[in-house]
Amino acid sequence: MSVSRRGVRARSAYTYGPLGLVPTGVLLVGAVYCLFPVSWVVIAATKTSGELFSTSTFTPGTGFFQNLADLAAYREGVFWLWMLNTLLYAGGGALLSTAVSAVSGYTLAKYRFAGRNLIFNILIGGILVPAVVLAIPQYLLFAKVGLADTYWSVLLPQILHPYSIYLARVYAGAAIPDSLLEAGRIDGASHWTLLTRVALPLMGPGMVTIFLFQFVAIWNNFLLPFIMLGDDGKFPLTVGLYTMLAAGANHPSLYNLILIGTFLALIPLIALFLTMQRFWRTDLSSGAVKA
């Protein structure tokens, strides 16, 4: 009796029973749901402005290279400047944010000091405040200290990210054994050595997660740079493409340039995910084992 029941359980776990296909189906529907708009962008980016509204949605167009050339020529290639700006904001911001989060998370997880829980609770509260709400107060503050309309005005507010610190704390708590730190201390390692030689290498996968989260968040951020920046030479892609869309009713909207621009803006994100994916996989599995 007990043997046969175990047999059934084993079969349903390792082979495809009638219910085994359901999760796959749900995931497939989810994948289609997520990829449908992306595929629309890819197809629409190939259409000339004449084809955009007259051919059916998923018929590829003939204007891909023309669109590309037009975009490159638009205002003497300002699109590439926006792309570089976005890379600077997202790359620089995510790096700085990861560094700050890792150190703070490690400290909060592994050091006992007065006010530790208070700080952590305030951070948890910070997660609940949407960044959108903070954009205008931040602008007014930056304007007061003369930093509005600078690269720093977009970078600085995105460096301190409560959710990343929270993630880093949870990860550090699980990934760094106290015994390892104690062994280091007995060997005479300073706090700095412990951080750089013991803690950070163990937190690698967690830091990759934070980096990716922040990179994507900053890449997609619209409101903060929209409010902070006045100089169109400092715009990131989101704000730049928006100026092409909202060019006023009396000027033609540059739909095909915007679409090809959106398409190009996707590529670095996809490339980043493909290259960073293996770190992320390690992260998920190690988290599962150690939790």
Partner: peptide, 25 residues
Amino acid sequence: TSSTQAGGDDSATKFLTAAKAGNPP
């Protein structure tokens, strides 16, 4: 120096915010 902005209502709001912050073009 000309700086291209998004046109319409958004631009008006942005200008008013900048003016309030003492940082207008």
